[in-house]
Design a protein around this nucleic acid. Sequence first.
DNA 1: ATCTCAATTAAACGATTGTTTAGTTTAAAC
DNA 2: GTTTAAACTAAACAATCGTTTAATTGAGAT
Lengths: 210, 210
Amino acid sequence: MSSVEKTDKREHILLVAEDLFAVKGFDGSSVRDIANQAGVNLAMISYYFGSKENLLKELIEFRFRSSVVALEEKSNDPGMSPWEKIEWIIDFYVDRIVNNRRFHSIMTQEYNTARSEEIKELITTIKMQNLERIKKIIAEGQKKGVFRQIDVEMTMATMMGTITQITNTKNVYCVLLRIDTADEEEYKAKINKRLKSHLRDLLHAHLIGK
Amino acid sequence: MSSVEKTDKREHILLVAEDLFAVKGFDGSSVRDIANQAGVNLAMISYYFGSKENLLKELIEFRFRSSVVALEEKSNDPGMSPWEKIEWIIDFYVDRIVNNRRFHSIMTQEYNTARSEEIKELITTIKMQNLERIKKIIAEGQKKGVFRQIDVEMTMATMMGTITQITNTKNVYCVLLRIDTADEEEYKAKINKRLKSHLRDLLHAHLIGK
DNA sequence: ATCTCAATTAAACGATTGTTTAGTTTAAAC
DNA sequence: GTTTAAACTAAACAATCGTTTAATTGAGAT
């Protein structure tokens, strides 16, 4: 078997595990579940990942790998105004979280769970890095006098929290917004547009006023 | 043993289970864990609650019992302006969620998990009831012309999501806000005040403008 | 003193958990 | 064709899971 197919198989297992973890939780998903769903032998998961817990760790690293770089890059772009950067961040996070809602559901599910300290620190570090970048952008806008003197940390919680709230309680908001629960694509498209529009309105009123 | 002590014992088990579920998740907490921590015999949990899952259901009902009534009452109060009602709701939810962060952590952890449909519907129903009340209040303010024509459903997601975000990622915001992680009371007090102040500012700018 | 029944216990139940073992297949290298 | 190492498998491992059983305790009613 070629090395391309090998990594594809690893990735395939990761994606199957991601779906299962999101639906049944980490402890609720057995290694046998994952193996059956992925169509591989039970022992292959220990063979590839060493342990179930390490599989989760690799999944987190796999999903977060690209995101930090993109945010870092934009935050230092001198050609954008602070508000333009905020708009970009809104779009970036809404796209990311809505398109990977199952993964982000795992993150919120497992973050509070006292599993390994290693995983907990991994998530905390990534979150902290991203929040520090956003903090810098808002502070920059405040220094330039275009942003009001609002509570920066709480404002970041509002941005992330609003997106998480919508995606993590899909059922509630599907009923409330009269969206068909079964049609995932329709849900994503509608929620994506509406979240971006709302967050732009909300944060503009909060940061700049009118 | 008197009936008073009996209900106390039931409640004691519920509170111990709540702590464990919040820290280790539902599937991560064994019935033996709960029994040991509560200082009761293993079999007593099946004896009192029938099953582990039913224990979770009773815990949810136990915690939600009082909340719906209070919200219902306030939303029909003719002596308060729409904005005063919003301020009351902010205080109500911040107090409730911050003071019961472990329980609300369980709710977000277990809501997406495909456990029993019964529990899922129980949570959805309660959330829907509460959101409908808030929706009515905002709609009332819009009708009176004191609130802007904002996206009501998204605004509710912002209110709930901001609080949930802060309390569910305690570690991140403790580092960010330089609060001692170990001192739960200091954390609660500081977060409570700051959340209320932020949400008032945020929603005032969003709903009313300046 | 005896009966009654809920409360409580230790022990065991079968099922499932994550992981390991020992052996086989596969395919490229020589 | 033989060698070699990775890929893969079926079976078994000990541990833990939620739940049940059967026996015992304890206190109030008769």
